[in-house]
Design a protein around this nucleic acid. Structure first.
Lengths: 364, 364
DNA sequence: TTGAAAGCGCTAACAA
DNA sequence: TTGTTAGCGCTTTCAA
């Protein structure tokens, strides 16, 4: 007969073996309160002998802290979120926090579920890339309940919270403006644009229109930059060059790109608004055998491993992704540590337009 | 004056408002035991009114379960682990488990720390890609303590645990054998090979040598396949064509590849053993402007987004990464659910040699 | 510095 | 079906 599995040693067990009170053992092991060197040694020895393993859950129930940050990202698998997550977890780890990561897949219902889960697990704070910046009641509720929230990659006008983002509008504006300045007159854009808000696009075109970034998804903000660049350059926007995938998937971008390149009057340049769109679009360009940059100039949002591996190397708008994650974590931790923190604000991080080989002027 | 923050509602609060006992409220909300429809409704209503948020930590302290799987991966940022993690978390989520993810960066000390953290947080089980398959005492200890472990991407002879892996030896053998059969006589390999065990390599070369996969790191297993392919084909192994980076970094692979291609008698084919090695090696090939496959055939371990985006498209050994993660999670969950589970075993998943455009025969 | 005792928020026996 | 009661393993008064 095998011996029945012995119950795992608990604090009282350790205390008993060391010949001290539970409280003393807890202090010795947990590093709080004050303990004599002698007690500390005996307790440590007893813990070792019993192969004691502290139960931080029990501690958390008492203290109300879990030293855990909850993260809601759209998709860990995307290079963008993977890298950001690395920034978040590095900083978190540095400060003694763990991270609990969930995926929303850009779906509001999943995001709500994820936030509930994180709250039930009593995370100390949440970093979230909201699927819909206009639907953030669940995040507001988390805050009211005492769990601070930091927005990542997206700001919302409907939530008073810290946010770490780039100005996608400005970045796209620069990139597209550059193409227009090089003489391109037919610049295509491939973007997710989940909500088809064509009436809004019209409004975007009015230069006076005050559009808040906190009302736009990243792809909308980037489209806005595209539109305004055209406006400022006096180049009309061609409806057929604005390609909407409606979903965050490379395959959809592949289809849209094939379609736009098959127009009888095809674009001479193409702008992709994020890394999945870029993968899909670039695959289409390659399959069609179109010469870059001779027949088509390409600019992508987000830098990736492979943008320097293809020929010609892609010109891109690079975001400081790791640093964005790291900074989001820093802001959250600051808020957790500081009993009276500063009012929340949005940090806009700078992007870099990395010019490589995929852009050429239109011969005049 | 703002009102002082009200204490968060607890189960007794809800019970009181609903006019039932704490136990009844717990049953109604937690979905265990039996409750009348009437009580269920009243409790639900009270919970809503008080904005009640269950504390699953407290429940876990009682039940001893957290419904959480701990994962130790080398680097979430690597496409390999990112995708595997997606497999793990999808399956986990399906079965009501969350995942707590940590990074070891292929460092044994960090891995130990990570495992400790997961145990302290009382995860129900652990999925780990061990940094060193010969140093797994901490994992054995987790098991003895009642926390099952599933190995991922690597087997160890020193741990009796489930494992989900590919046979890297066989896969590499096939790929290299294919190159040799095409007439290549100088095939380079770029591999991590953290431990420089040259004396072992000699042993690998003896066809009779029984080398267990459970003693080898993935890169060593793949090297072994490379060596045996040579042996079986009667092609001598050239020491200068075996390039060791010693570290898991694209930059190191870049350097090694540049160096091997600069030999006065350079290789006519190159085999890279994982995705980071591939990125580095391919960048070197591109920078050097070497024509693939005319002057150099290329085969990579692991398929990636961009392998079809470069010209020519890369021939690769594709692992079922997502499925490997998913299967690891399934095995762990089975073990958690089943009180008397089957003895642990290793699942070898099949790889696919995807032939694309980067391999050509040597003209005879 | 130490120990006794209370209690964090929940679940599980048990009895009613 | 319901309530009473006793904990889970830990931290934190409080008094000694």
């Amino acid at each position: 007969m095998t011996a029945s599995r012995p119950r795992r040693a608990t604090l009282p067990d350790v205390a008993a073996l060391a010949g001290v009170s539970t409280a003393a053992a807890g202090r010795a092991l947990g590093g709080y309160g004050s303990v004599s060197e002698d007690v500390r040694r005996r307790v440590a020895e007893a813990a070792r002998q019993l192969n004691y393993r502290a139960n931080r859950l029990a501690a958390s129930v008492r203290t109300g802290r879990t030293d855990t940050i909850g993260v809601v990202c759209a998709d860990i698998e995307s290079p963008f979120f993977a890298r950001a997550l690395r920034g978040i977890s590095d900083v978190a780890h540095e400060h003694g926090f763990s991270t609990l990561v969930t995926n929303s897949d850009e779906d509001l219902a999943s995001e709500r579920e994820a936030v509930q889960l994180l709250l039930h697990k009593q995370v100390d704070g949440i970093i979230c890339a909201p699927a819909d910046v206009t639907q953030v009641d669940h995040l507001a509720q988390a805050q009211t309940g005492g769990t601070p929230v930091v927005l990542f990659d997206r700001v919302s006008d409907h939530l008073e919270a810290d946010a770490v983002v780039v100005d996608g509008m400005k970045a796209a504006y620069q990139a597209v403006r550059r193409l227009l300045d090089l003489g391109h007159r037919r610049v295509a854009i491939v973007a997710e644009l989940r909500q088809p808000r064509e009436q809004d696009w019209a409004r975007f075109l009015t230069p006076q229109a005050e559009v808040s970034l906190g009302e736009l998804s990243p792809s909308e903000a980037r489209l806005l930059g595209y539109l305004r660049a055209h406006w400022d350059a006096g180049v009309p926007v061609r409806r057929e060059l604005v390609r909407r995938t409606g979903t965050y998937a490379a395959e959809a971008a592949y289809q849209q790109t094939k379609r736009v390149l098959a127009l009888k009057n095809p674009p001479t340049a193409i702008f992709t608004v994020d890394n999945l769109m870029t993968v899909g679009a670039y695959r289409a360009i390659r399959d069609l055998g179109i010469a870059v940059p001779d027949r088509l100039s390409v600019v992508a949002f987000d830098d990736l491993d492979w943008t320097v591996l293809v020929s010609p190397a892609l010109s891109v708008i690079a975001q400081p992704v790791y640093e964005m994650g790291a900074e989001a974590a820093r802001r959250l931790i600051r808020r957790l540590r500081d009993p009276e923190p500063a009012p929340p604000g949005t940090l806009f991080m700078d992007v870099t337009l990395v010019e490589r080989e995929s852009v050429a002027p239109i011969p005049t």
